[in-house]
Nucleic acid binder design. Structure first.
Lengths: 198, 198
DNA sequence: CGTCCGCTTGACTCAGATCAAACTTGGTGG
DNA sequence: CCACCAAGTTTGATCTGAGTCAAGCGGACG
């Protein structure tokens, strides 16, 4: 199945606005009228708010090939700042037209809903995952969920450092836990390929 | 704005199936054909999978007045087990009819998408929140986000114990951090009402 | 050839988890 | 009206394991 970003690009055609941003560049400010929702094609964007004390609060780090600020579709103002973390390629999708699509194009609407449902599912697990205190159990849980039905091997996407981020550990903690898991025979690995169990 | 569960109940009328479940009761099993999506009206339901080693992995704890297993709308099988954690009131929404609504009822479809977008937003922040190591900063961040624009006071919903769960702390750690915040003058509280800053 | 970055390991610290216990508070029922 | 129970709240002592800082290795890539 197709990425929702690609689907949006297909459907909206020339209305999509591609943009190269430098690190730190502001995409929108809290309170602005939202005219777009966004996709990160390359790099990273952050959603920020500020505490009563003025400290930055990171709401979300949008990584490559993901949509963000979708909630702006249903609001008359952004509820946080959006900023490119580093040099980043952004796609801007006009809110008005996306809403129009959602209302007029049933296939798109369903695909969009499906995408959101998948996100919700993944994010919920992300939270439960982070409530597993032990690094080893957390890793086993994260990997187990990526396994198919009777499967016991899988190839982890990206680097182990990325994986550490995904599961909410420092890379050091991850490497150590992996080693312990290997020593205990609970897991074997070869590069990015992992074998659970014996 | 109306809760999505109430909207579903309104729209689907008598097709909605209400059900009282005892703790431990199975709602569906992984691999079953999904005929429903669910809402928790009272109590709690869990989504479970199992690691290669046979250990339970909690995917999600669905609390009161929330929808769960939405992803089943777009799958021909449940990808995890669903179980009532305790005595629980469940609403069962027939998948077929929900899909029909999504396709035929533009208002509902948009409301559903809006609901999912809100969920995604909240869950993303839940994850970022949990990456704040310090209990104090975590609490400030969680509270700050619940504040309106120029606001500085708010009433926390539920008990402090619930709040501790929400932000991923033990209640002990929460109470201690609250005390430190009060002593430092970063926060004042009176029951469930909190004043940020001086 | 040199630089960058992922990978790996070591030593140390500390804040939150855990276990335990006491004290509120609200509601129930006799 | 009070005894009682359940659940939230609060505090203390202790422990543990992930974070942090630091350093070294090795492969990829220009």
């Amino acid at each position: 199945m197709k990425l929702i970003i690609d689907l949006l690009v297909d459907k909206l055609g020339s209305s999509v606005n591609f943009k190269s941003c430098e690190g730190g560049q502001i995409l929108f400010r809290r309170g602005d009228r939202p005219h777009h929702i966004f996709g990160v094609l390359e790099g990273e964007a952050r959603m920020l708010r500020y505490s009563a004390e003025g400290a930055q609060i990171v709401i979300h780090r949008a990584k490559s090939i993901t949509l963000f600020a979708e909630a702006a579709l249903f609001s008359d103002h952004y509820h946080c700042d959006g900023q490119a973390t580093e040099n980043t390629e952004i796609a801007q999708f006009p809110k008005k037209q996306v809403l129009h699509l959602l209302q007029q194009d049933r296939d798109f609407s369903l695909a969009f809903t499906q995408h959101m449902a998948g996100q919700v599912q993944a994010l919920r697990f992300g939270i439960e995952l982070r409530s597993i205190r032990s690094a080893e159990d957390r890793i086993i849980a994260a990997l187990s969920l990526r396994l198919g039905d009777g499967q016991t091997r899988l190839k982890v996407m990206g680097t182990w450092k990325d994986f550490a981020q995904d599961v909410g550990l420092t890379h050091e903690a991850l490497y150590r836990a992996l080693r312990r898991l290997e020593q205990a025979g609970r897991l074997h690995r070869n590069g990015m390929t992992v074998q659970l169990g014996a």
